[in-house]
Every structure is written in C-alpha cells, then in structure tokens.
C-alpha cells in the first residue's frame, strides 16, 4: 500500500502536474493563435479593449452581475470556486509537501479556515449538481462533463478532509489517502482537456465574443438590432440611454 501511495504521490503526480501545466499552455496558445487569425481576417479590426478588460474583471466575481437573476446560484458558485482554488493551493499539508520536494513554498491557510472551506466546497459541489439536474433549462444545456465535474471535484475534497480531520485507523487512512491522491491526479490531468481549461482561457473568453461579434464588419450590430437588443456583445444590465436611435439606420438598411 505504501508503494502505491509513493507512486501516486511521486511519478504519477509529476506526470499529471506537468501534463496539466503544459496542456493549459497549449490550450492557451491554440486559443490565442486562433483569435489572432480571426482578428487578422476580421472585416472590422477595432476591438473594444477597455470594455473587454472591464467585463473580464467583473465576471471574476459574478455575484454583482447575477445577483438579480440567480442570487443563490451565484453565491454558491463563488464560494465553491474560492474553495476549489484556495484549499488545494494553500492547505498547510500541501504547502509542506511542496516545500519538502521543491525546496520552496508559500504561506498556508489557517487549519480551521481550510477545514470550513473544504466542507463548503463539498456542499457546493452537491448543490451545483442538484441545481443542474433539477433545472430543466440547465439540463438542456448540459453535457456529460458538466454533470461529472462537480461530483469528481467532491471526491478528493471529501477523502482529503477525512484524512486530515477524522481519527482513522492506519489502514483506513491509507485507503482514503490513495483515493485522495488518485482522484486529485485525475482532476489535474483532466483540467486542460475539459471545460475546466477556462481557468486560463478566461482572459480570452470575452475577447472571443469581442472579435467574433464584429466578424464580418457590422455583423454584431445587425444581429443586436434584429433582436432588438443593445449593441454590445455581453448583456448589459444597465442599458445606456440613447442607443436606440443609432440603430435605426442599420435596421433600415437591413429591411431595404
């Protein structure tokens, strides 16, 4: 058993970790190259940088934007994401492991905070899964990985929490630790090849709509006009007054 643990903690972890890092770099490079190509070919190359950056930053904390339509969902999602990022990176045990192998590390969360955040993340996983299954609209939009990810995320969190907090027998500890290591490694290796790649693609995701919206020139405005929506790629909750008149000519042009 110790041999399996050493394998999962050593070579297997190194494989999964480096594949994650390189895979994310690759995903980012391909996305950026594709965007660049699209931008080069676009009829209208004027990219609204200021708005794109502002949108990207504001979507990092979606509570403000989604608060009116889905307050519960947005709260759970933000807490869940916070736990997902903070606990694996700043858990004292992980920091120690990293320091012992690489020779350097960073600060750690206080143990009680990490424990609470861990269980909040587990609860969040189940809540998000239930929300996705329970809502008809969400169901119709979901792929297989959308259901599997919250559940998969919960596995290393539950097993890790039990290992660190429960008074287990050595045999149970080793078994749970192996589950923790294997599921954690699986998460790492799947990140760049599934939707979780959004963790590095996020800065590009607003750019995609920003560029695509204007490809070909004026297309976005025409679509917006046809739908009777404000002329921005992203839903703006506070529509600026006076956008209607600017679109009258476009509509005319289309009908003509």
């Amino acid at each position: 058993m110790q041999g399996w643990l050493d394998f999962a903690r050593g070579p297997l972890f190194r494989f999964c970790f480096l594949l994650m890092v390189l895979g994310l770099l690759r995903a980012f490079a391909f996305s950026a190259a594709g965007l660049l190509r699209a931008h080069r070919r676009a009829g209208d190359r004027d990219v609204p940088w200021r708005r794109l950056v502002a949108d990207t930053v504001s979507w990092l904390a979606p509570v403000g934007r989604l608060w009116r339509s889905r307050p519960l969902y947005s709260t759970i999602s933000v807490v869940w994401h916070a736990g997902l990022i903070l606990v694996p990176l700043f858990l004292a045990a992980h920091v120690t492991l990293f320091r012992n192998s690489a020779g350097f590390a960073w600060f750690a969360l206080p143990q009680p905070a990490a424990d609470v955040l861990t269980w909040l993340t587990v609860l969040g996983s189940f809540a998000l899964f239930a929300g996705r299954v329970g809502d008809r609209n969400a169901r119709s939009l979901s792929r297989r990985q959308d259901y599997l990810w919250p559940l998969l995320i919960a596995v290393p969190f539950i097993s890790g929490a039990l290992c660190s907090q429960a008074p287990l027998s050595p045999a149970a500890y080793q078994a749970l630790m192996l589950v923790h290591l294997l599921s954690g490694n699986l998460v790492l290796v799947l990140i760049p090849f599934t939707k979780v790649a959004h963790c590095v693609l996020l800065p590009l995701s607003q750019l995609v709509s920003g560029v695509g919206w204007k490809f070909p020139a004026g297309a976005g405005d025409r679509v917006a006009a046809t739908l009777g929506k404000p002329p921005t790629p992203v839903v703006d909750l506070k529509p600026s007054a006076g956008h209607e008149p600017t679109h009258e000519p476009v509509r005319e042009e289309m009908t003509a």
């Binding site: 058993m1 287990l168 027998s169």
Partner: peptide
C-alpha cells in the same frame, strides 16, 4: 503509521485540529 508496522493512527500522536 502503516497497518503492517506500528499500526498507530494519526490521532494517537497528532492534534488533528492543527496541520
């Protein structure tokens, strides 16, 4: 800490409230 060896649980020596 191994079941085949001393078979001592973490909680026997460590305060689980701390890292």
């Amino acid at each position: 800490a191994s079941p085949e060896g001393g078979n001592v649980a973490c909680a026997d020596c460590h305060d689980l409230g701390k890292p």
